[in-house]
Structure formats: C-alpha cells, structure tokens
Design a binder for these strands. Sequence first.
DNA 1: ATTACTGTACTAATCGCTTAGTACAATAAT
DNA 2: ATTATTGTACTAAGCGATTAGTACAGTAAT
Lengths: 120, 120
Amino acid sequence: MPWNLNSGSPIFVQIIEHLQIDIVSGKYKPGDKLPSVRDLAGEAGVNPNTMQKALSDLESTGLVHSERTSGRFITEDDNMIKNLRKSLVDVQIEKFFKSMEKLGFTGEEILELVKEYSQK
Amino acid sequence: MPWNLNSGSPIFVQIIEHLQIDIVSGKYKPGDKLPSVRDLAGEAGVNPNTMQKALSDLESTGLVHSERTSGRFITEDDNMIKNLRKSLVDVQIEKFFKSMEKLGFTGEEILELVKEYSQK
DNA sequence: ATTACTGTACTAATCGCTTAGTACAATAAT
DNA sequence: ATTATTGTACTAAGCGATTAGTACAGTAAT
C-alpha cells in the first residue's frame, strides 16, 4: 500500500517521520537492513530522489547509516531509539496541548475531553 | 507580533487555521469587521496576495463574507461558529490519538500520559 | 469634489519540492 | 568473469506557493 503522503508538509519530511515511527515502533529493529532506496521509493510511491533525500537527512541524525554499497542499516544504539521515541511522544503531547489551548481549553478541560474520547 | 508561520504546510493554509482559531476563540465575534486585507497581511508578515487567498478561501466556507467595498465581516451565525469549534476540537483529538497509536501506545496509556502532562 | 480606504484582479519573477532521466563506482550473487 | 544491486551524484523540467508590483471600481470620510 502506498504511504499516506498528502498532509501539507513536504513529502520528504513526511517520509522521515514515517520511517522514524517504523523504527521506534519496532518494525525495523536495531541493526536491521533497510530496503534499498529504489525499493522504498516504490513502496512509498515517490521518486527515488525524494526517498534518497529523506534517507540522507535521516542519516545526518545518526539514526541510520549506509554501508556504501551493501545497503543502509538501522543504528544499533538502543538508547538513541529510546530517546527518539520519548522525544516524538513529547512533541505530540505538547503540540496537542498547544492546539487545544489555542482553542480556548484549560488543562483540566483537555484532560476531560481525552477521557471521554478514550472511553468510546 | 508576526504570526508563527513556518510549520511545513503552505502559509495560506496556516493563515486560514489561525483565523479560524481567532474566530472560535472569541477574538473576533459574530458580525465583527475584520481588519483590511492589507492590514492583516502586515500584521501576519505576509504578502497581501497571500492573505487575500486565505480570506477568499475562508469566504467559500461561509465563515466570513465581504461587503464589496466596506470591508469583510465575521458571520453572524452562532451555530456555524460553534460547529466549527467542535469540528476543530475533534480534528485535534483524533490527530493526537492517531499519532500516539502509531507510536505504539494504547488508549489507556495515552490517557495516562495526558494526566501526567496536565499535572506539571 | 476630493481623498483615503475597501476588495479584487492581473502579470512576472522567484523559490522549494518533486519528478524524470542518466550515470558511476563498489559490492554481492551467480 | 559476468550480472545485478547498492548508494550516490547530477542536470533538466514542471508545479505550486509566495512575493512584488500595479491597477481598477466602489464606498466612506472630509
């Protein structure tokens, strides 16, 4: 299935986020080999150049590294992945609270709304 | 203060969201006159054309309407504003839950994290 | 009447993202 | 040895968003 890439921000950014999620959620484990640039591009339904840009950006954070001709691999640093997961969570929660506060809700009201939502 | 317009999606989309929030949060009340296109553009720090695009898009939803030469006004339909507010809230909550579930959290875990966050 | 302000319309130029296409060197597989 | 696959690099083109600049017609204020 082609990835869901339509939500405003540049596709290569969405690809980065998608891959980060695949890594922190365990789809790719530390040391795993990633599919090739071309395969990932085909899977995502984008141009190989776009996938390459996303991957080389990801690489600059150290989350993945490439062995020149044998492929690209997930970092084996468990801590880096754990920290990324925590950081992604924090970003989501903060973004959510900021948005809701802009809409005029207090912290307590937000908590109440979340309670309601998680009960249905 | 210039608006905070840097988060990936096109500026005119962010302007639309910004204005919607200003309306549902009560900064602009039903029937209020909006500042002129040029003033809003100056306030937001964007080109008047960009602001115009955002406003004419907003207009197509009925939330604002323009009186050809005297200015642009917020709708007087209270219900439309209420519904928009509810819809914006729903979107935020759903987006948040989807993101968190992608990161591997269950509904209960999400609720727990929100509790923690709202307590500090 | 004159002036200032309103929304609106239009062209041209620029910038970033994306795609298309091609190419190369190094490794793996056969 | 030959072939396929790897990451990487590069140019050219197209597209949408944005900016800059200009212009016009209708209304309000003076």
